[in-house]
């Protein structure tokens, strides 16, 4: 069932991480992502892994939920790892040489690191951000962090409101899709068998009602907002004002220590510059995650 997907979902709770200011979490997430890409040797990866495990434990999110969230990216993980194993060249003798396939020690090391990197990236950022931050808090945080841009006339508030609405309606649309699918299944619609074209055609009875109701909903929402005199940013006050607390400062210090540790350990072990210089298609591809 679609509703069983956990990646990107919010799990309400009262853990240390849940209680952090969303802005802190956003900044920490950026620090975390940078650190993941800086990591380049076993020691730094060990540090990253330990920190990720600590984060997960601190968030109180169950291991089952985390594993469920990883499930959809397992294919990407394996795919990336395999490509790296085969396509990485190396100095010295290949471990396996067969026809045009040559596997080097470097390739295996790189594949393991790459898979671990993606895994840590997904688990770390989702624990820090999406699992533990409500969508509303998240957009509030983004709006607040981007608010300096207002000075150069960037409509930050509008963007934040659009994001809030989009996020808010994802579950509604998922629910609606499921409802319509069930209704069409009840009329004997078959979504799983047949070739690609047949499968695409089978989606029509879902897509048309879904679009119709989405447009209708958007229209109703706009009217409802206008009825309550929504005029955007101007003179608007907030019910819950964001404020940094002592624990946020503590986490900033921790994250500074963390990224410092990753950089120092990277230099100690040595081959960081080479790793940074090498461009890897997959690294660029997955950067936005």
């Amino acid at each position: 069932m679609i509703t069983d997907m956990t990646l990107g979902q919010f799990f309400p709770g009262k853990s240390v991480i849940h209680r952090l200011d969303p802005r802190t979490k956003l900044i920490l997430t950026i620090v975390f992502i940078v650190a993941t890409f800086l990591a380049s040797n076993p020691v730094t990866f060990l540090l990253l892994t330990v920190c990720t495990v600590a984060l997960v434990m601190a968030s109180g999110i169950s291991l089952g939920t985390i594993l469920k969230g990883i499930k959809p990216i397992i294919f990407i993980l394996i795919f990336t790892a395999i490509l790296n194993v085969f396509l990485t060249g190396g100095v010295g003798e290949p471990l396996v040489a067969f026809w045009i396939i040559k596997i080097y020690k470097e390739g295996i090391i790189r594949a393991v690191f790459m898979a671990l990197r993606i895994l840590i990236l997904i688990v770390g950022t989702s624990t820090l951000l999406t699992y533990t931050t409500s969508p509303i808090a998240l957009t509030d945080g983004i709006e607040s962090l981007l608010s300096p841009l207002k000075k150069i006339k960037v409509p930050v508030h509008t963007f934040a409101m659009m994001m809030t609405i989009a996020l808010r309606f994802i579950p509604t649309l998922v629910e609606e899709t499921e409802k319509i699918m069930n209704a069409q299944k009840s009329r004997g619609a078959d979504f799983s068998s047949g070739g690609l074209i047949k499968k695409a055609k089978a989606l029509i009875p879902i897509l048309i009602p879904l679009f119709v109701s989405a447009f209708k909903r958007a229209d109703e929402l706009a009217t409802a907002m206008e009825c309550r005199c929504y005029r955007g940013d101007k003179n608007r006050t907030k019910l819950v004002k964001l404020s940094y607390k002592g624990r946020d400062a503590l986490w900033f210090v921790l994250s500074a220590l963390f990224i410092g540790g990753v950089i120092v350990l990277g230099f100690v072990a040595g081959y960081m510059p080479e790793e940074l210089a090498s461009t890897n298609l997959f690294r660029i591809m997955f950067y936005p995650i």
Binding site: A183, Q184, S186, R187, P205, P209, S213
Partner: peptide, 17 residues
């Protein structure tokens, strides 16, 4: 599903043709 027909709540949402 052909033997047990189900009319959902607010079934007008399912019309498409």
């Amino acid at each position: 599903r052909y033997r047990v027909g189900l009319v959902m709540q607010y079934p007008e949402y399912q019309l498409f043709d």
